[in-house]
Design a protein around this nucleic acid. Structure first.
Lengths: 166, 166
DNA sequence: AGTAACTTTCAGTAACTTTTGAAAGTAAAA
DNA sequence: TTTTACTTTCAAAAGTTACTGAAAGTTACT
């Protein structure tokens, strides 16, 4: 496969995969484009390479910056803004984990706390409370595990991983 | 909070949370309803409790069974089918992990393999290949880690977890 | 075989999400 | 201060996904 084909395929595929991940297609494509771009790109470059609208380009660059996956990079002598992607994959993973935890796990913890306030007086409520308690147990574990991961370095991941499977 | 309020809140919330998880609202609500149901329920019970259509009920029960989160339970003397949820939370988590791995991770591995066929001849392609290689490294690790998790028992999770954070 | 009880399918519709493009906003340069 | 080069916003359009209801299919009792 030729380099350019590989790049195109990566950008297209990343977009499709993104949707399976709850990330919108354009956001994932911009991320892919910047990840493999040898030079910083400006909004116009991105708009043209992906043939998308300005508004779409801007919104998604902004969101990638909010996630910490893309940074602004000013070139001296140039007025417009350029963008680069975070290239350290371990950082990328951590940034994504932070967002997914926020979106997927934290609301669960919040709801479970609210529901735990159910009075446990009869047999039926004991059963209900047990289900909630079990879910809470695993959610809390997952929460601490992810917190540890977010603080850890790449090396730790490899090491713990080896411990885990042996 | 009263028991019935707690149940209603759980079902409603689980539906909302489901959508943040890439699971559709109805599927999540049916799952919640069955999780806390003291008795097996039939399709009609579910349809009525959630005030949704037959078709919707049927499709989502089916998908929950495909995922292994809900089982058919025949009552002797009754012709219609009843359903119960898997109540062991560790099993529930594993079943969900299996599905998410299939949807989110496996397509990534597939694409990366295809892209790895890019010829590495010049400086630019080296850079491109490095990005792909890095992603592949972490994806493969995540893949094995999840495989281990899927095979493990609940106890292992707790133990490894303690090892991991210390 | 006929009928009744229940389950499944599917085309059309509704609800939600993403994208566009034009207009408004901002700030450096003339 | 005006122009110019760029960025941001937002309402409407396009695209996507979920839901309904009616019709077709299945099974099991008479």
């Amino acid at each position: 496969m030729e380099l350019q084909d590989g790049r195109d395929k990566f950008i297209q595929s990343w977009g499709t995969l993104g949707s399976n991940w709850g990330i919108n297609r354009t956001m994932a494509q911009i991320h892919a484009l910047l990840l493999i771009a040898p030079e910083p790109l400006c909004a116009m470059d991105i708009k043209e390479k992906l043939t998308i609208s300005m508004g779409n380009t801007n919104m998604n660059i902004r969101q990638l910056m909010d996630w910490g996956l893309v940074y602004k990079k000013l070139k001296s002598g140039e007025r417009k803004e350029f963008f680069v992607a975070e290239k350290d994959m371990w950082e990328v993973i951590k940034k994504i984990v932070i967002q997914r935890k926020k979106k997927e796990l934290e609301p669960v913890l919040k709801i479970l706390d609210e529901i735990s306030a159910v009075d446990g007086h009869c047999h039926d409520s004991d059963e209900f409370c047990k289900v909630i308690k079990d879910i809470k147990l695993f959610s809390n574990k997952a929460d601490s595990l992810l917190d540890t991961l977010i603080k850890a370095d790449s090396n730790w991941f490899t090491k713990s991983f080896i411990n885990m499977i042996k």
